[in-house]
Design a binder for these strands. Structure first.
Length: 437
RNA sequence: UCCGGCGUAGCUCAGCGGUAGAGCGUCCGGCUGUUAACCGGAGGGUCGUAGGUUCGAAUCCUACCGCCGGAGCCA
């Protein structure tokens, strides 16, 4: 008999099929039993009538508990009373294992309990849908970049030194007790491979030991960091809005069922298309001053100060598409960012802020390519040639203008899924005080 | 590190000075179309920990621990 998956059931109407999976829920009313069956691709109802199956099969059904693993064989039939529209009229039931009392019940649970049982929580319909959308986003990013000539070049996780400064790093030990750090960005290394291959990207985990306890922060999270030789700031922004649009559209096309499962209102997602609105940092500061009203829980900032979380929220509320904020003051951004030739006080860099309060999902910039300017920045930031000499070499040997950006995968998933916390965007989130399971 | 909130049954919570409660889950029984099925019954608790106030503390006070949200920092 043919082993099929729940997502393909409509193609097998009227046929006898085999399904392999788990019991998500079980109901009985004496002479009839309903198994809510899941197999990872979807959920369907399986029905056991006492008259249609041998007595031992009907008795076996009564033993089923939530999350017991089973193989069922039966006829696919259309029935409006069944969730999803199709059900299985069970003829045979193989019990693979009767599950112990399952901790996650049908009623609601608190986040602490669910996080302690994350290894089981991922089985729930909502979490399955989110992880499928995450997969779609990841694959869409790869496909977009590959189709545009970008080559995947992995950056190291184990680093001898910090990348950008500022962020708190995870320390570990290299051989011979030498100090090492977990990567907080693959950017510096991807700049090197960009000079080898032209257009490259790295896609991997990054680590920040910040004591940040908010819905937007993970200690370990995934970033995609494209880097392209001869790309200007303008090329960079175009690439970003095209990539984000591609990803959103593909999720809307291919994961509509999952978006529906998690109850995502896709109205604003459908509006995502280039060009994205752009404002300069200076305009943003002015905008915040105008928008501020007495009694607001935030205060406007002065030119030269960085935005806080409330400022990002207020700014994104002014637009229904992702918005670029560009040309930040030099002193609040990373050392490697190229100054604007029209105003050396600001950099040719931009953050992309997602709508609906999701905040920064991309940070990017054109990089400094002039050796003398980079050397000056090293001095200003106290970076020594011994550790950063290799990075300086990129400016000595055929330096070219180049640009790149980093997109936070979890924040992107949270935005597209409409989640209120990034902890649901990754199978096993690592947070402050959360290292298990 | 700082600010705010919360720790009571396996889970989600109510009770807020006078003998510890509900729903769900579990177990037993009933039911031929259920939709987080329903109906009847049973079992289940040193009320986060330590100290204090009181005739009497889950309830009031103090400290500590844990969790959640936020700020700063950061993507």
């Amino acid at each position: 008999m043919k082993w099929v998956t729940v997502d393909r059931l409509p193609q097998h109407e009227g046929e006898m099929v085999e399904l392999r999976g788990w019991v998500q829920n079980y109901r009985s009313s004496g002479k009839i039993q309903f198994i809510i069956f899941r197999d990872g691709t979807g959920v369907c109802q399986a029905v056991l009538f006492v008259k249609d199956v041998p007595p031992e099969v009907f008795e076996a059904g009564k033993r089923l508990t939530q999350e017991s693993s089973i193989i069922i064989r039966g006829t696919v039939r259309k029935d409006d009373r069944a969730p999803g529209g199709y059900e299985i009229g069970v003829k045979e039931l193989d019990i693979v294992q009767i599950a112990d009392e399952y901790p996650i019940t049908k009623k609601e649970h608190g986040t602490e309990f669910l996080m302690d049982h994350r290894h089981l929580w991922v089985r729930s319909s909502r979490q399955v849908a989110i992880l499928r959308i995450r997969n779609e986003i990841t694959m869409a990013i790869h496909q977009f970049l590959q189709e545009n000539g970008f080559i995947l070049t992995e950056s190291p996780i184990l680093m001898g030194t910090a990348a950008e400064g500022g962020a708190t790093l995870f320390e570990t030990t290299y051989v011979n007790d030498e100090q090492a750090f977990l990567s907080q960005s693959g950017q510096l290394h991807v700049e090197a491979t960009a000079m080898a291959l032209g257009r490259v990207y790295t896609f991997g985990p990054t680590f920040r030991a910040e004591k940040s306890k908010t819905r937007r922060h993970l200690i370990e999270f995934w970033m995609v960091e494209p880097e392209a030789a001869y790309f200007t700031h303008e090329d960079n922004l175009k690439l970003q809005e095209e990539m984000v649009t591609y990803v959103v559209r593909r999720v809307l096309e291919r994961r509509a069922a999952e978006l529906k499962t998690i109850g995502r209102d896709t109205t604003l997602l459908e509006k995502v298309e280039p060009p994205f609105p752009r404002i300069t940092y200076t305009e943003a500061v002015e905008m915040l001053k105008k928008l501020h009203k007495p009694g607001d829980e935030w205060e406007p900032i002065e030119w030269g100060e960085d935005f806080g979380a409330p400022h990002e929220t207020v700014l994104t509320q002014q637009f229904d598409k992702p918005v670029f904020v560009e040309k930040f003051p030099v002193k609040i951004k990373a050392f490697y960012m190229q100054p604007d030739p029209e105003n050396p006080e600001v950099v040719l860099g931009a953050d992309l802020l997602a709508p609906e309060g999701y905040g920064e999902i991309i940070g990017g910039s054109e990089r400094i390519h002039d050796p003398e300017l980079l050397k000056r920045r090293f001095e200003e930031h106290g970076l020594d040639m011994e550790t950063y000499g290799w990075y300086y070499d990129l400016r000595r040997f055929g330096s070219v203008p180049h640009s790149g950006f980093g997109l936070g995968v979890e924040r992107t998933v949270a935005w597209i899924c409409g989640l209120d916390h990034v902890r649901e965007t990754i199978p096993f989130p690592r947070l402050l005080n959360r290292l298990h399971p």
